[in-house]
Protein backbone atom coordinates (compact mmCIF):
# COMPACT_ATOMS: atom_id res chain seq x y z
CA UNK A 1 0.00 0.00 0.00
CA UNK A 2 1.21 3.54 -0.74
CA UNK A 3 -0.46 6.42 1.10
CA UNK A 4 0.60 9.74 2.67
CA UNK A 5 4.21 9.32 1.51
CA UNK A 6 4.47 5.96 3.25
CA UNK A 7 5.00 2.59 1.64
CA UNK A 8 3.56 -0.40 3.49
CA UNK A 9 4.07 -4.11 2.88
CA UNK A 10 1.87 -6.56 4.78
CA UNK A 11 0.58 -3.62 6.87
CA UNK A 12 4.06 -2.55 8.01
CA UNK A 13 5.65 0.74 7.00
CA UNK A 14 8.82 -0.20 5.12
CA UNK A 15 9.78 3.26 3.86
CA UNK A 16 8.56 6.82 4.28
CA UNK A 17 9.36 10.45 3.57
CA UNK A 18 7.99 13.61 5.23
CA UNK A 19 4.28 14.05 4.54
CA UNK A 20 4.81 17.53 3.10
CA UNK A 21 7.07 16.23 0.32
CA UNK A 22 5.46 16.73 -3.09
CA UNK A 23 4.24 13.70 -5.01
CA UNK A 24 6.86 14.03 -7.81
CA UNK A 25 9.67 14.25 -5.22
CA UNK A 26 8.24 11.34 -3.24
CA UNK A 27 7.99 9.20 -6.39
CA UNK A 28 11.58 10.00 -7.39
CA UNK A 29 12.89 9.25 -3.90
CA UNK A 30 10.97 5.97 -3.77
CA UNK A 31 12.29 4.97 -7.19
CA UNK A 32 15.87 5.71 -6.09
CA UNK A 33 15.34 3.71 -2.91
CA UNK A 34 13.59 0.65 -4.30
CA UNK A 35 14.78 0.37 -7.85
CA UNK A 36 16.91 2.65 -9.98
CA UNK A 37 18.25 1.25 -13.24
CA UNK A 38 14.92 1.70 -15.08
CA UNK A 39 15.16 5.08 -16.85
CA UNK A 40 11.73 4.69 -18.45
CA UNK A 41 10.26 5.31 -15.00
CA UNK A 42 10.98 9.04 -15.36
CA UNK A 43 8.85 9.24 -18.48
CA UNK A 44 5.78 7.67 -16.89
CA UNK A 45 2.83 9.68 -15.61
CA UNK A 46 2.02 9.70 -11.89
CA UNK A 47 -0.54 6.89 -12.20
CA UNK A 48 1.95 4.56 -13.87
CA UNK A 49 4.73 5.51 -11.47
CA UNK A 50 2.54 4.69 -8.47
CA UNK A 51 1.38 1.33 -9.85
CA UNK A 52 4.87 0.46 -11.07
CA UNK A 53 6.41 1.28 -7.68
CA UNK A 54 3.82 -0.70 -5.73
CA UNK A 55 4.37 -3.71 -8.00
CA UNK A 56 8.11 -3.33 -7.58
CA UNK A 57 7.86 -3.28 -3.78
CA UNK A 58 5.72 -6.44 -3.74
CA UNK A 59 7.45 -8.45 -6.45
CA UNK A 60 11.01 -7.73 -5.33
CA UNK A 61 10.05 -9.17 -1.95
CA UNK A 62 8.03 -12.11 -3.25
CA UNK A 63 8.22 -12.60 -7.04
CA UNK A 64 5.67 -14.58 -9.00
CA UNK A 65 7.93 -17.52 -9.83
CA UNK A 66 7.17 -20.62 -11.85
CA UNK A 67 4.38 -19.11 -13.95
CA UNK A 68 4.34 -18.72 -17.71
CA UNK A 69 3.96 -15.04 -18.72
CA UNK A 70 0.43 -15.81 -19.97
CA UNK A 71 -0.51 -17.15 -16.54
CA UNK A 72 -0.05 -13.88 -14.68
CA UNK A 73 -2.90 -11.36 -14.86
CA UNK A 74 -3.62 -7.84 -13.67
CA UNK A 75 -6.89 -6.45 -12.32
CA UNK A 76 -6.84 -2.82 -11.24
CA UNK A 77 -9.32 -0.08 -10.47
CA UNK A 78 -9.43 3.59 -9.57
CA UNK A 79 -11.71 6.60 -9.27
CA UNK A 80 -10.19 9.15 -11.66
CA UNK A 81 -9.10 6.90 -14.55
CA UNK A 82 -6.37 8.92 -16.35
CA UNK A 83 -7.94 12.34 -15.68
CA UNK A 84 -4.82 13.63 -13.86
CA UNK A 85 -2.77 13.11 -17.04
CA UNK A 86 -5.63 14.06 -19.38
CA UNK A 87 -5.64 17.54 -17.82
CA UNK A 88 -1.86 17.87 -18.11
CA UNK A 89 -2.09 16.85 -21.76
CA UNK A 90 -4.91 19.34 -22.33
CA UNK A 91 -2.62 22.03 -20.89
CA UNK A 92 0.20 21.02 -23.25
CA UNK A 93 -2.11 21.42 -26.28
CA UNK A 94 -2.14 25.18 -25.71
CA UNK A 95 1.55 25.20 -26.65
CA UNK A 96 2.85 22.03 -28.32
CA UNK A 97 0.94 18.79 -27.69
CA UNK A 98 3.24 16.37 -25.93
CA UNK A 99 3.39 12.87 -27.48
CA UNK A 100 5.03 11.59 -24.29
CA UNK A 101 2.03 12.74 -22.23
CA UNK A 102 -0.51 11.62 -24.80
CA UNK A 103 0.49 7.96 -24.48
CA UNK A 104 -0.56 8.05 -20.81
CA UNK A 105 -4.07 9.38 -21.45
CA UNK A 106 -5.56 5.94 -20.83
CA UNK A 107 -5.97 4.49 -17.35
CA UNK A 108 -4.86 0.98 -18.31
CA UNK A 109 -1.39 2.09 -19.44
CA UNK A 110 -0.23 1.52 -15.85
CA UNK A 111 -0.92 -2.20 -16.40
CA UNK A 112 1.18 -2.09 -19.55
CA UNK A 113 4.10 -0.56 -17.67
CA UNK A 114 3.91 -3.22 -14.94
CA UNK A 115 3.57 -5.97 -17.56
CA UNK A 116 6.59 -4.74 -19.51
CA UNK A 117 8.70 -4.58 -16.37
CA UNK A 118 7.78 -8.07 -15.13
CA UNK A 119 6.98 -9.83 -18.40
CA UNK A 120 3.31 -10.47 -17.64
CA UNK A 121 1.13 -11.38 -20.62
CA UNK A 122 -2.03 -12.70 -18.97
CA UNK A 123 -5.60 -11.41 -18.77
CA UNK A 124 -6.07 -7.87 -17.55
CA UNK A 125 -8.89 -5.51 -16.70
CA UNK A 126 -9.16 -1.96 -15.40
CA UNK A 127 -12.32 -0.76 -13.63
CA UNK A 128 -13.36 2.72 -12.54
CA UNK A 129 -15.55 3.28 -9.50
CA UNK A 130 -16.01 5.99 -6.87
CA UNK A 131 -14.49 3.93 -4.09
CA UNK A 132 -12.31 0.84 -3.84
CA UNK A 133 -14.73 -2.05 -4.18
CA UNK A 134 -12.51 -4.83 -2.91
CA UNK A 135 -15.36 -7.34 -3.27
CA UNK A 136 -15.63 -6.65 -7.00
CA UNK A 137 -11.87 -6.83 -7.61
CA UNK A 138 -11.40 -9.97 -5.56
CA UNK A 139 -14.51 -11.59 -7.09
CA UNK A 140 -13.25 -10.88 -10.60
CA UNK A 141 -9.79 -12.17 -9.65
CA UNK A 142 -11.23 -15.36 -8.13
CA UNK A 143 -13.25 -15.95 -11.29
CA UNK A 144 -10.13 -15.62 -13.47
CA UNK A 145 -8.32 -18.12 -11.25
CA UNK A 146 -11.32 -20.47 -11.11
CA UNK A 147 -11.69 -20.50 -14.90
CA UNK A 148 -7.99 -21.24 -15.27
CA UNK A 149 -7.47 -18.07 -17.32
CA UNK A 150 -4.50 -17.24 -15.09
CA UNK A 151 -2.68 -18.76 -12.11
CA UNK A 152 -1.54 -15.56 -10.38
CA UNK A 153 -2.92 -12.04 -10.29
CA UNK A 154 -1.71 -8.64 -9.18
CA UNK A 155 -4.85 -6.75 -8.25
CA UNK A 156 -6.09 -3.70 -6.41
CA UNK A 157 -6.50 0.08 -6.50
CA UNK A 158 -4.21 2.72 -8.06
CA UNK A 159 -5.65 6.21 -7.75
CA UNK A 160 -4.14 9.64 -8.33
CA UNK A 161 -5.66 13.05 -8.92
CA UNK A 162 -3.39 16.04 -8.40
CA UNK A 163 -1.56 15.60 -5.13
CA UNK A 164 -4.07 13.04 -3.76
CA UNK A 165 -3.15 9.42 -4.30
CA UNK A 166 -3.62 5.94 -2.89
CA UNK A 167 -2.39 2.52 -3.96
CA UNK A 168 -3.53 -0.83 -2.56
CA UNK A 169 -2.07 -3.86 -4.33
CA UNK A 170 -2.49 -7.56 -3.58
CA UNK A 171 -0.77 -10.66 -4.91
CA UNK A 172 -3.20 -13.54 -5.35
CA UNK A 173 -2.16 -17.03 -6.41
CA UNK A 174 -4.06 -20.29 -6.97
Amino acid sequence: MIRNNRIYRNNEVIWETPEDQSLPDFLRAAYDHFSGQYPKFHKMDHLSKLGWLAAEVLLQHRPFTGYAPEQVGLVLANRSASLDTDLRYFDSIKDFPSPALFVYTLANIVMGEISIRHGFKGENAFFTSDTYDEGLIMGYTRQLLYEGAVSAVLCGWVEVMGSAYEVILHQVEK
Binding site: P39, K43, D95, F96, P97, S98, P99, A100, V103
Partner: peptide, 16 residues
Protein backbone atom coordinates in the same frame (compact mmCIF):
# COMPACT_ATOMS: atom_id res chain seq x y z
CA UNK B 1 17.99 3.71 -26.57
CA UNK B 2 15.28 6.16 -27.57
CA UNK B 3 11.89 4.80 -28.71
CA UNK B 4 9.17 5.80 -31.15
CA UNK B 5 7.53 8.23 -28.70
CA UNK B 6 10.90 9.91 -28.23
CA UNK B 7 11.08 10.28 -32.02
CA UNK B 8 7.82 12.24 -31.90
CA UNK B 9 9.22 14.40 -29.09
CA UNK B 10 12.28 15.14 -31.26
CA UNK B 11 9.97 16.30 -34.05
CA UNK B 12 8.23 18.59 -31.53
CA UNK B 13 11.65 19.83 -30.37
CA UNK B 14 12.61 20.87 -33.91
CA UNK B 15 9.29 22.69 -34.35
CA UNK B 16 9.39 24.33 -30.95
Amino acid sequence: GLDSIDALELIVLLQQ
